[in-house]
Design a protein around this nucleic acid. Structure first.
Lengths: 191, 191
DNA sequence: TAAAAAGGAATGAACGTTCATTCCGGAAGG
DNA sequence: CCTTCCGGAATGAACGTTCATTCCTTTTTA
């Protein structure tokens, strides 16, 4: 097995096990076992478990951003842009349930809180399409004049919840249902 | 210290520590210490940690239900009823941040998933005002004809998120902002 | 004084991490 | 061309720590 393959195997195993059992239900030994690798080998690629988890999230983010922005047209009306992004997000989640479960775990943990704080107040100017869209929507009086944070919650809270309910088998989503859910989110933020 | 006081102290300490540090960051020994009680004493009141956590959640639920239903008028229009309930819920959360943080932990864990499954599909007929309100709202064509689960996510997802952001200090909520957030949730579910 | 409750040290399992050792592909030497 | 040697990658048993739970002693209660 080549060097990169080994790293990939570790990352894949960690994603699977953490998505399935949570951070505390996925011991390093188990991750190593699933990756077909010695326990110590993980530490040749990652300083420790925390670093591994953070890195894993970063890679997931990098992988998903292009998927969500694919076909995004910055000159279309706000409504269409919002619906495009949120629909893509939903499709990404239900098409990649492991990614979803990992991200959910990540956000509901100290890692996620720190990350959120950075995203909201951080000086690092990320190319955050969502933030841009919302700020523009407010200033052009298309969206409700609420703090950005609240718009985020109105727009994504339901998406996360519905995706989870689908993945857990509480509902079965189809394209029509996704479209209607995303429309409902738009109703929440539109003026 | 009387017997009931001791139990109360344990419950209070567990709530505080779990809310602050999560399930895994609140060892039994620490809970015992905070409660001013021996480690073994906890096991005179609760069979094990899992049972203690489940019981704690049940008590929280019992305590909060009356607060939220206080002043609820089942004969008012759906819109008013919804806004009453959601506003009360939000006030409960931001007025009892420890309760909120514990409940959040609980829902984002295997405990919570089981609980949610019971609530949605369980045969046990709880006096769930929310479910009643939504079913009535759909059949009278006041609310969108979406699966109940999705209406739940549209209505409560944002509330949970906004409450968290307030408790974490990302925003400062006042009555006006709460009212406008709850209105936005109504916009999401109304027809 | 007998029974019940409380206490907290002891226990054993599970975890993240380390480190002495093994393994392996290729360079050096004959 | 075969053998020996070398260095870094990989390994997994072992370590120290942490935790839930138990168990036996001490204290309180009736």
């Amino acid at each position: 097995m080549a060097k990169l393959d080994k790293r990939d195997e570790i990352v894949r195993a960690a994603l699977e096990l953490i998505a399935e059992h949570g951070f505390h239900g996925a011991p390093m030994a188990m991750i190593a076992g699933r990756a077909g690798v010695g326990a110590g080998t993980i530490y040749r690629y990652f300083e420790n478990k925390d670093v591994m988890i953070t890195e894993l999230f970063r890679e997931l983010e990098e992988r998903s951003y292009p998927l969500i922005k694919e076909g995004y047209a910055p000159d279309k009306p706000h409504r269409e842009r919002f619906i495009h992004l949120n629909t893509a997000l939903m499709h990404y989640f239900i098409g990649n349930p492991l990614d979803y479960r990992f991200i959910e775990q990540f956000f509901n943990s100290p890692y996620g809180v720190a990350h959120r704080r950075d995203k909201l107040f951080g000086t690092k100017e990320g190319c955050d399409v969502f933030k841009e869209l919302f700020e523009e929507g407010i200033s052009q009086q298309v969206m409700k004049d609420l703090p950005i944070v609240i718009l985020f919650d109105l727009a994504f809270g339901p998406i996360l919840g519905v995706a989870r309910d689908h993945i857990l088998g509480f509902i079965v989503l189809d394209d029509a249902l996704i479209a209607r859910t995303v429309e409902a989110c738009w109703d929440a933020i539109k003026r």
